[in-house]
Design a protein around this nucleic acid. Structure first.
Lengths: 139, 139
DNA sequence: TCGCTATTTAACAGATGCGTTATATAACGT
DNA sequence: ACGTTATATAACGCATCTGTTAAATAGCGA
């Protein structure tokens, strides 16, 4: 399970949130989620571990979990790559959307406005999906 | 489906990636994923729409999808809240992990996993998970 | 070794997600 | 109204996720 899927679960986000401040024993984390059984939390921990989001350290009989920030970098950078302009402040956002729309129009495929365009050179958007899939499908 | 779950799917991330540059018609997006059928992509679009990550604009018979940056703010801010210190440079990170372990001691809250059943009064993280669940908590 | 605490693993059930094909809806042009 | 294009919805199968209980594993102390 990758980092994106790992953080898709609210419980796991809760765990990460708890680990943000300090490392914690598996049992303590389990107690933090009274609605879940201890094995359930244990498995969430496994998922987080396998996703590289947390690390474990053994202390006596306990397992101490802590946040592994590197694991979040994947998400961070994805978000960054998606950002490009619009930051997250909606002000800067609108500004950039405008700028971008105007600027892009110059060097990019129009991809809008005039309805029935011919077939622009579609960088990666190939032929007809229907046609393509239909070759060899029943009925 | 919330934003986190929405972006957990690689295809949907692919769609967002395509929409980063410009708005696109549903059909063009479908063509961009030759491995999937058109209805499959259409449903991904629905998920993204319901998660607030994209918006649709009707143009003739087509639906033009575009990125809705506000929808990503939720993830952005979650990431930020989790960051707090360690930015993503591992230097600052290690520094803070040390500092934090020593300095931090109080001031967080357990996560809220859904419905009506919960024990918020539980001080912080108590002792035995077993013991706690065992006290009349069968379902 | 025994017994206790802490945690993981196993086995299974129910919910949910994703894909497919078939069909419906929408808007256009003739 | 009809045919075509564009897109969404319906119905369904199957895999995966999440939770549960029961049992296994691990470390400690008597």
């Amino acid at each position: 399970m990758d980092a994106f899927a790992a953080v898709a679960d609210p419980t796991r986000r809760g765990v990460l949130r708890l680990l943000r401040d300090r490392e914690r024993a598996a049992g303590d984390l389990a107690v933090a989620f009274p609605a879940l059984s201890q094995p359930a939390v244990s498995r969430h921990l496994r998922v987080l571990r396998e996703a590289g989001l947390v690390t474990v350290r053994i202390d006596e009989q306990r397992r101490l979990y802590s946040l592994r920030p590197e694991g979040l970098v994947e998400i961070e950078s994805w978000l960054t790559s998606l950002r490009t302009f619009w930051s997250q402040g909606l002000d800067a956002l609108e500004r950039h959307l405008d700028v971008q729309t105007a600027a892009k129009a110059a060097g990019e495929e129009p991809a809008k406005r005039d309805s029935k365009r011919s077939k622009p050179s579609k960088s990666r958007l190939a032929k007809s999906a229907h046609a393509q899939r239909k070759e060899g499908k029943r009925r």
